[in-house]
Design a protein around this nucleic acid. Sequence first.
RNA 1: GUGGCCGUAGCUCAAUGGCAGAGCACUGGAUUGUGGCUCCAGCGGUUGGGGGUUCAAAUCCCCUCGGUCACCCCA
Length: 538
Amino acid sequence: MPVERRPLERVRGTQDHQTRQATSMDAMRTKCETAFGLHGFRRVDVPVLEPAELHLRKSGLEIISKLYSFHDLGGRRICLRPELTASVVRAAIAQPSPRLPDKMFATGPVFRYERPSRGRFRQFMQTGVEVLGAEGVLADAEIIALAATTLDTIGITKYTVTIGNVGILGELLTHLGLTGRRRALLLESLEDARRHGIEAVRTRFASLDPDLIQPDESTQIRDGAVTAELSSTSQDALARLVAQTSAGDLGRRTLEDVTTRLAARMHADTARAAVDRALAFIDELGAVRGDPDTALDAARALLEAHGLDPKPLDQLSETITLLDAFGVRRERVQIDLGLSRGLQYYTGMVFEVDHEALGAEKQLCGGGRYDDLYRVLGGRQSVTAIGFAFGLERLVLAKEAETIDGTRDNVPDAVFVVPSTPGDAVIAARAATALRHIGVTAALDTSGRAARGAVAFASREGFAYLAMVSRDDPPETLRLRLLTPDGVPADDTISVPDGPIPITSSLEWLRANPASSSESTGLHRSTNRAETGTEARS
RNA sequence: GUGGCCGUAGCUCAAUGGCAGAGCACUGGAUUGUGGCUCCAGCGGUUGGGGGUUCAAAUCCCCUCGGUCACCCCA
């Protein structure tokens, strides 16, 4: 029978983490979580699988279009979570009674169907924090500062914090009476406007909602007559108007019929005017970016020109002052009022942290204020909230980019245990077990190779110690030998118990002479077999 | 999602349309104080996969899978 031997490939956009990478990810996670814990956050774990609806309710088109979703065997619509926030909030709502503020962090894999590239995967790790009961600028500032100081703790320095506020545009849209889908589309187009120009947005908008942008010839005919009366839109007024302007020319339609249609047109006209005004504002708002002082001045002028409340800008200013108090230097901070972010649940302050060495996928962190989400997901009260998430893979990339080549990791002591001959299996097993029993890492050579080859291997792989065991040695003894990367240590260089000694004393000796305290030993050879692939690639 | 580049031994990479190779790794041996260096020998390939053009394809064309860079978007 021929058997299919073709190797199976990974699912596109997923990764295998070999030892070094898995360890880096783990260490990165721990550093982040430790920093979160230091700020009084508690850990929560939430499922990878969620009802698709959780993410359909208010995540925004961008995320939804990339959602992994399917029907399970029970016919339920399930998705792999694309982010953590919605799950954490859902879990919080499910709890008996919230005591605010409730500060939580969560870590785990998330899934988005995107085209993979460096620093961007279909399955990746996020670690993020959420604060429920997060009122005002102090909450804003602390959460941004937490992101920044976590990076400081990790030792990542080349980052920039960019702060925006989607609430400003939101307020204008409310003023203009724009709601629902139009509101969502306009909020989404904030960032588009800057990148592609306001005309591109207008064009896109027209294709999605033709009534609003494109002038309609049939309405224009009557525009002149109607606009004068726009302020009073009562049916009576309309009826009078229609009767005056088109005396006896109504054809088969009733007067009521005509006025109703006209009212609808006028509504479309006011909406169109509102959209035009919103687009103009978006165009200008997107241009407000740069260092805090300059950007805030420009923003104040803009809001004043549009008759909007400057309060969000005062808050932004306060936030930046507070950031300084939290230890985030002003030079790191940029203002960008064109920052919109893909998740639609954001309602106010939004921010991102970028790293300069990461190219296209430079964003380390993103977050902001989402004061509506708690209710949207079924919470019975209104709860202000704020949060952010790091991409762990990107933190690792950023850290590596800043790490000078040749820096060595701290590694534990490790003993490579080699049976002298295949007949020494029993004694080798006993020795390895004895070492592990006192917490010493013992890797047993099970390759079956000749002993001399095993010794060369242990040396090359960077093991700290070699234990060659043989039945011929006296019982309860271990020949322990210190290995160094540079060759055989001369006897006078390092005092090693060379030769048969009692296991008990060799263990004591090991404890007293941890190899990791010596700069010249340890498991840090770059030729480590498991790592050659990833090393060469990066 | 758009455009470009790439895919050859376990790894890093060579090879005018003309015998698929090197270094490292791996296995064995020599030397060494059972030790990395050095030396000798060996193992190792459906050239990502499929189809086409050709006397002849790693090489040219098409499809596909994967990677990567710039956009886009985001963590």
